[in-house]
Amino acid sequence: MSHAPIILASSSQTRQDLMNRLGLSYQCISPEIDESPQGERHADDLARRLAFEKAKVISEQYPDAIVIGSDQVAWREGAPDIFIGKPLTTENAVKQLQANSDKIVYFSTALSVQQQSSGFEHTLVEHYKVKFLKLSLAEIERYVERDQPLHCAGSFKCESLGISLFEQMIGQDQTTLMGMPMIQLCNILRELNIVLP
Rank of each mutant, 00 (worst) to 15 (best):
M1K: 09
A4R: 13
P5E: 10
I6H: 05
D17F: 01
L24S: 08
L24R: 04
S25P: 15
Q27P: 05
E32K: 10
E32L: 08
D34N: 15
E40T: 13
A47R: 13
L50F: 08
L50N: 09
F52P: 06
E53G: 03
E60A: 14
Q61T: 08
Q61N: 09
A65I: 07
V67A: 06
I68Q: 09
V73M: 12
A74G: 14
A74L: 07
A74I: 03
E77R: 05
D81I: 03
I82E: 15
I82P: 05
I82Y: 09
E91N: 12
E91Y: 06
N92S: 11
K95H: 14
Q96A: 08
N100C: 15
S101Y: 10
K103G: 07
F107I: 08
T109S: 11
T109E: 05
A110K: 10
A110Q: 12
A110F: 13
Q114N: 07
Q115P: 11
Q116E: 14
G119Q: 03
F120I: 01
Y128Q: 06
K129Y: 08
F132D: 09
K134C: 13
K134G: 13
L135F: 04
L135A: 04
A138G: 02
A138I: 06
E139H: 01
E141Y: 00
R142T: 10
Y143K: 02
V144H: 10
E145F: 10
E145L: 09
P149V: 02
C152G: 11
A153T: 13
A153P: 14
G154R: 05
S155V: 04
F156Y: 15
C158L: 14
S160P: 01
L161W: 02
G162S: 05
G162W: 03
S164N: 10
S164G: 11
S164F: 07
Q168Y: 10
M169R: 13
L177Y: 04
M178E: 03
P181R: 00
M182W: 01
I183C: 04
L185S: 03
I188K: 00
R190W: 01
P197W: 02
